[in-house]
Design a protein around this nucleic acid. Structure first.
Length: 185
DNA sequence: AAACGGCAAAATG
DNA sequence: CATTTTGCCGTTT
């Protein structure tokens, strides 16, 4: 999420170790507000001290996030998630993100199908934009949205992540040649 | 008001 | 087949 309004509400940024690297999870008072792929950037851990009884919630949310992330990276369906704070999104974006959560592991939709699902059949391109703005990738499975002609489509964090995540769910794409990956299973 | 995308279908070679 | 053109729509600047 490029917008800084989401960051303003952060109270904790936590490291989430996984077999695929250390992800970063940021939490607001409402729950998980942002999830980032492993990178070399340096992060400060505590943004501001949690007040009230929030500390207990945060500790639980971090563990829930870690468990969910490991399941997702293994291509397994998610049982329970921490509360998700999607308040930074526009109404349209939130409709898209909600619709994404209905796509199960091993399934895919095209951007056009998702546009239809949110009641804007012509907005396939805007859907792609909303997918790119997904603040909680992997857990909100924007990687399961692919191009209508059989290609991978795009992915903000880089297509190799999209390819990997889909592969873990049994969906194979060939290496990316000339920008168009071919689906082989 | 204009430009910009994780798009898609049609047209073109 | 591959590449280009045209239409679309929410968001950003």
């Amino acid at each position: 999420l490029k917008n800084r309004s989401a960051k303003r509400n952060w109270i904790l940024s936590a490291a989430i170790p996984t077999p695929d690297g250390v992800f970063r999870a940021s939490f607001s008072e409402q729950g998980l507000i942002w999830l980032g792929f492993p990178s070399h950037r340096v992060f400060r851990l505590v943004i501001s001290p949690p007040g009230g009884n929030l500390a207990g919630d945060l500790a639980r949310w971090v563990l829930l996030t870690q468990a969910a992330l490991q399941n997702a990276l293994a291509g397994v369906a998610l049982d329970d998630l921490p509360p998700l704070d999607l308040s930074a999104g526009t109404p349209f974006q939130r409709r898209v993100w909600t619709a994404l959560c209905a796509i199960l592991p091993g399934e895919t939709r095209t951007y056009a199908q998702l546009a239809l699902a949110v009641g804007q059949p012509q907005a396939s391109r805007a859907v792609g934009q909303a997918c790119g703005a997904n603040p909680i990738p992997v857990l909100i499975p924007c990687h399961r949205v692919v191009a209508a002609h059989g290609g991978l489509g795009g992915f903000s964090a880089g297509l190799k992540w999209k390819q990997l995540l889909l592969a873990r769910e049994g969906i194979g794409f060939s290496y990316i040649e000339r920008g168009v990956a071919r689906r082989w299973s």
